[in-house]
Design a protein around this nucleic acid. Sequence first.
DNA 1: ATTAGCACTCGATAAGGTTGAGTGCTAACA
DNA 2: TGTTAGCACTCAACCTTATCGAGTGCTAAT
Lengths: 343, 343
Amino acid sequence: MLTERQLLILQVIIDDFIESAHPVGSRAISKKEHISFSAATIRNEMADLEDMGFLEKTHSSSGRVPSEKGYRYYVDHLISPSIMHEDGDVIKHIIQDNFFEFEQIVQMSAEVLSRLTNYTTIILGPEIFETKLKQIQIITLSSNTAVAILVTNTGHVEHRSFSIPHEIEPSDIEKMVNIMNDQLSGVPIIQLAEKFNSQIASMMKKYVSNLENSYHYLNAALIQDHPVKLYIGGKSNMLMQPEFNDVDKIRSFYAMIENEDEIASMLKQSKDGIKVSIGRENNVEAIKELSLITAAYHLGEDQTGTIALLGPTRMEYRRVISLLNILSHEMTEALYMWYKNNE
Amino acid sequence: MLTERQLLILQVIIDDFIESAHPVGSRAISKKEHISFSAATIRNEMADLEDMGFLEKTHSSSGRVPSEKGYRYYVDHLISPSIMHEDGDVIKHIIQDNFFEFEQIVQMSAEVLSRLTNYTTIILGPEIFETKLKQIQIITLSSNTAVAILVTNTGHVEHRSFSIPHEIEPSDIEKMVNIMNDQLSGVPIIQLAEKFNSQIASMMKKYVSNLENSYHYLNAALIQDHPVKLYIGGKSNMLMQPEFNDVDKIRSFYAMIENEDEIASMLKQSKDGIKVSIGRENNVEAIKELSLITAAYHLGEDQTGTIALLGPTRMEYRRVISLLNILSHEMTEALYMWYKNNE
DNA sequence: ATTAGCACTCGATAAGGTTGAGTGCTAACA
DNA sequence: TGTTAGCACTCAACCTTATCGAGTGCTAAT
């Protein structure tokens, strides 16, 4: 168990290192305001903290740097969640100003969060389990091209252009759209493909001549791949961090951040509340020198999305956690209001 | 005027430097297959070429490197436009496979071009002078939220969620949409705002009670800001180039590439055909060490968009020019066919 | 006009020297 | 027994110096 003094020293070291990015030495600590014991004493305590695995040295005569275990302890025990009022106000404004467009809220939040923190923000759109189809529209552009538009109850719009096979009449299209809206409106997006295949296809045969092709096209245009939407803001913030003054690190960071699938799967793990993964805790090779902080937000009762901040392990945990707390809370609240109105 | 031999040497040096990124020395040249004179002779010629400004040295005893003037001469006189057949085939496939979706073509082209070249691709969507409104749709999501959808004759879709003020009845919305579609369908996007203000506003007053708010919202949602669309692919390719093994250069490159307005204005200059801007020729501080190659593509008769490749001045000009030739040609052709079908 | 030869230049790399911030340990002290 | 002053030691960072080699320019011979 750690003594009061060890806790104090650990905290001071981590705070200092988070700010300066330089290893912290005993003399520097002893000079701080609220430190009343000598450098030698601190050295002894630091040696103990190192033995316990909370601190590390970069080389045998360097100052101390927090280890992953040190950060973990810091996050779990040493930071009292403080509210940053200015930050909170900024966030509230963003959300209120964009209250009526879900995607706008998300997009803006990602940018603001990056600007406030200088880290990289990743927001995962809500899981689509509960998102429902609102309406399908097909607008013909010419005799043989059309654009299909799919609107969900969350106001999300997907569209896809396609060609109209020769055999299909405009009236056929109209019929098909009517059938689809009749049958599919209110159906969760995730069940669309299934419903489409099991129920709609047979119905259409009755009304629409030459189904094969149109079926194929519609299927391709609307039902296929609705990848989880990922909003990433402040990628180039990472270039500002002193730990990224090495070209190779920059390269591998960009390689990682452009692999959206991997990122999505990293974020999906997160449950309720705020989760902090420090360095190797992520089990993902690509970010073994970074920390990932995720917070869930909710849309309605079952849908959850994830907001995350990615930064060096030397991260301003206190501030970031407070920010994510506020943001996820505000988003959830705003979306709850919005969702209630939509029922 | 340059002698035959000087031309040959200039060409060999530039070809070699483009491939290796290392200054080229006289001995290395003299060893090449088709070079039959000695290193000393080459040194004399190189000195002359340097006097004329086609070559430079990185330091007093280094090999030679092409100057901007050297690249300029190379591009203007030394490269016979050769067709790369494999590249051409890849491009044709992309375009044919995505024939029916304009944005898809553009998106895919940007990615393929980046993959083939290892440079950064920038594609500027067609100017909107001739793009016309096809249809406006407003889909209500709930009693007080709705999403407005605007479709152009090119199959482009814009959407925007907004709130419905209390005073407005669903029937009002329907009326408004009908009026707008009656009056605005076929109107060039660029004139939408004007037409909306001059003609529609007054008409609506007759039919729709409490116009002020709805007017405001619709205006904001649909008419405002349709920025030129920019597709950028292969940003991180630049990290592979040896000239970018300096963190500061990477930083300023990303700062530049994220400033979309500046990029758009750089590209807009380009007229017909292929234009090569080498280093400082761009007059843009941010890319004074890069080359920008632009090619126009056409949509219909009056609309032109721009495809561009951005890379180090040490660029594979021959290959890149040939690629852009093929791509702009294929895009223009595909779009012509498509446009014709749409009339 | 061409080329061999040679002195010279300069970046790149490695080797040694100095500095300063930091440590661990010991012995004295409260 | 816990704390502290003192001191020898370590090591990265920085600077200087030496060496090497790829390259040049110039001169003189062909």
